[in-house]
Amino acid sequence: MRSSSSMAWSKRLDRATLALAWLAALGLLFLVAMIAFGVLLRYVFAIPILGANEIVELAAVVVVMAALPYCTAERAHVGVDVFDPMLGRWGRLAGDVLSRLLSGFVLGVLVWRAVLKAIDAWRWGDATNMLSMPIWPFYAVLAAGAALCVVVFAMQIVIAVAAGEAA
């Protein structure tokens, strides 16, 4: 009963991370188009975009932060695996739970600070240098991506503890 409800939650979480990954995918294709188009404008039409790199930079924030929860949910982060046999089943479980607790805490701090920063940037009207685009939405994206990562970590802890085994 309990495990089936946690399965349902896990599925919902997968859908959320994937949905955000599609946003990242849009951002990625936009980046490709933006960079290639910028080159085209400059060479073929001699129209440079002053501050085009600001668009590239902000798009990169969306691409990376929207992809991070998906990356984390897919367990794509690189770790050292050589000591696994020595740790034993309980050692691996303890290690996985501990690293996720600590990482979740640090990302939680990041979310909190990023939210404050987004509010701050919005209140003071912080904008990019050349194009004067508002910066606060991008701190908000950073906060959202990191927050969903924290949820992913929490879910991975629940699943590992329920199974009594590291993934």
């Binding site: 930079e57 990169a60 909190w112 990023a114 920063k117 701190y139």
Partner: peptide, 27 residues
Amino acid sequence: SAGGLLLTESYSAVSGYTLVVVPMFIL
């Protein structure tokens, strides 16, 4: 300070212009 470092370095890494070659070349 630790929280500030976390925030400024995270933001400056993900908004860094030259690092954009990473997703582009991987794609």
